[in-house]
């Protein structure tokens, strides 16, 4: 039943997307919109096809940066969440700075990161990590804290050490909320990778967008936008799939 309804929903979404594309194509012709403002979809698609090799490489680069950054951010977030759950002192010392760090926009120090880590992939991974670790840290802590006194007592009655309690009870119990944060982190990591590329890079979607903007190549710009959207949606869908696989017993919306 749920399978059928999810297929139904997918079809509906696909139709909506097609409708938007058709409306896009027609309205450009119908209202004679200047192609500089909005080129017809067909033009954008043919540009995309024409530039397929460099565009694919750009998607590959940005996706790699975002995924590596997300993985690093998740690892950082989970480890710091565990550390905070172990020690109130650590939490009191560092959590406020974690929160404060989120108030500093990446725009403010992106240039520094490029200077430190070069304009290769490393600097983008760092920026994606910076953007994605925080929700993971907070949700790891929240997930671990949400485990009931009774469940912990049960494991203690079996003679479980704090480490066994962490790995057999608290972390698995936190997995659904960790995965919810990773979903959020996935979008942030992609933004991080693209913003990182704006500060300095030779390849990637950020570069495609920036060059198209500077050279006033409007179809290329739209091709970049479409591909960025597609990359973001695919990354998100992959994380949702993973979430449903590894934390299926409790999938938060």
């Amino acid at each position: 039943m749920s399978r059928r309804s999810s297929i139904g929903r997918f079809t509906a979404q696909l139709f909506a997307l097609l409708a938007i594309f058709v409306a896009w194509e027609w309205s450009v012709w119908l209202f004679e919109i200047s192609h500089d403002k909005l080129p017809p979809l067909s033009v954008v698609l043919s540009t995309m096809w024409f530039d397929r090799a460099p565009l694919a490489a750009a998607v590959g680069t940005t996706l790699l940066e975002a995924v590596l950054g997300l993985m690093a951010g998740t690892a950082t977030g989970v480890v710091s969440g565990i550390a905070f759950s172990r020690s109130r002192l650590l939490e009191r010392m560092f959590l406020p700075y974690f929160v404060a760090s989120q108030a500093i926009p990446i725009i403010a120090f992106g240039a520094i990161i490029i200077m430190w880590f070069g304009n290769g992939i490393a600097s983008k991974v760092i920026i994606a990590l910076y953007l994605s670790f925080f929700p993971v840290a907070v949700n790891t802590l929240r997930g671990i804290r949400s485990v009931g006194e009774g469940e912990i007592g049960l494991l203690r009655s079996f003679g479980a050490s704090p480490t066994a309690i962490l790995f057999k009870l608290q972390l698995p119990a936190a997995l659904p909320s960790i995965m919810t944060a990773v979903r959020l982190g996935a979008s942030l990591a992609l933004v991080g990778a693209i913003v990182g590329e704006w500060f300095g890079a030779s390849q990637g979607l950020g570069v495609v967008l920036l060059m198209a903007m500077f050279d006033y190549r409007i179809p290329q710009l739209w091709a970049g936008i479409l591909l960025t959207g597609l990359t973001g949606v695919s990354l998100y869908a992959a994380i949702v799939f993973l979430h449903k696989r590894i934390a299926w017993w409790q999938v938060e919306a």
Binding site: G150, E151, L154, L155, S157, A164, L169, P172, W249
Partner: peptide, 24 residues
């Protein structure tokens, strides 16, 4: 010890819940 609530772990199968104490 069997507490008042069953406290089965939702991510473990029947078999793996049953062996939890032994495993620990």
């Amino acid at each position: 010890f069997m507490p008042q609530r069953d406290m089965l772990l939702p991510w473990r199968t029947v078999l793996d819940n049953a062996i939890l104490a032994a495993e620990i």
